[in-house]
Amino acid sequence: MANTADSISREEYFYGHKACAGCGGSLAVRAALKVLGKNAVSVLPAGCMSAVGFNFPQLCFSNNSIISTFAGTASMLTGVEAGLRARGFKDFTAVGFAGDGGTADIGIQALSGAIDRNDNIIYICYDNEAYMNTGIQKSGLTPFGAKTTTTPAGKNIHGNIRPKKNMFEIAAAHDIPYAATASVGYIDDFIAKVRKASQIQGTKYIHVIAPCPTGWGVPVDETVNIAREVVDSGLWYLAEYENGEFKLNRKPKEFTSVADYLKKQGRFRHLSDEDIDIIIKSRDKKWEYIGKNFKFD
């Protein structure tokens, strides 16, 4: 454990930002930049991390950093990488930090294009499961049953009616050199994956679950615990895709209670027992699929 802390830079590259207390997304950005170091060039689309990081004249990124268009995170990364390479720079990493909406809904076309071209970039999606920056609207990565301002919980419809888009396997389906899922609750695993990604040539995609206390309706000090619980309860999984193979990194011996995980959060508090059964069934189906198709050693 102590090795992880010693393996990353002691410098802070994302400091003094105006994110809410206990923000999971800022933890992901901070940890990733501490791995990549001062020569990382980060690209951020509209979203929480650009809103909290660039408040003129306060510039919270200590590395070179730029805001992209909402849809163009990956295409700007392509340009940054090509531009620096053309000017003769060798020791740098082009890294993008986009939220779930900026990745799975608005930025998916640019991301797909960048993976197709196999540009040498790292794309990190910090997934807080809704458009949190604009006030909690449903995104393609909002899970089934979650209450957002655009999917309110009423008598007939209990929050979001659609399941979470499987962004990790969509990225993997491009036959990407490296894709991974992570959670800020298991920061050692996330840091190891960012390091691994930085050493691979080609496009890398990392999908990290980053709880948002404001949007999820949990206390600010629960961010890390809830990010662990989502993995322990089997609703999220830590996996990698490399050389055409899926690999599972962590297999809970026994899942912790899904109901406990859901009921802790304001966005799921309205769910009935039937809704929870639907969530448990879809989890079991997913793990059956993982058991058949993912390697685990």
């Binding site: 400091y15 003094g16 004249p57 306060q58 510039l59 919270c60 200590s62």
Partner: peptide, 10 residues
């Protein structure tokens, strides 16, 4: 605008 890491408020 400025060099990176330009902080003016706590």
């Amino acid at each position: 605008c400025f060099e990176a890491g330009y902080l003016v408020s706590v």
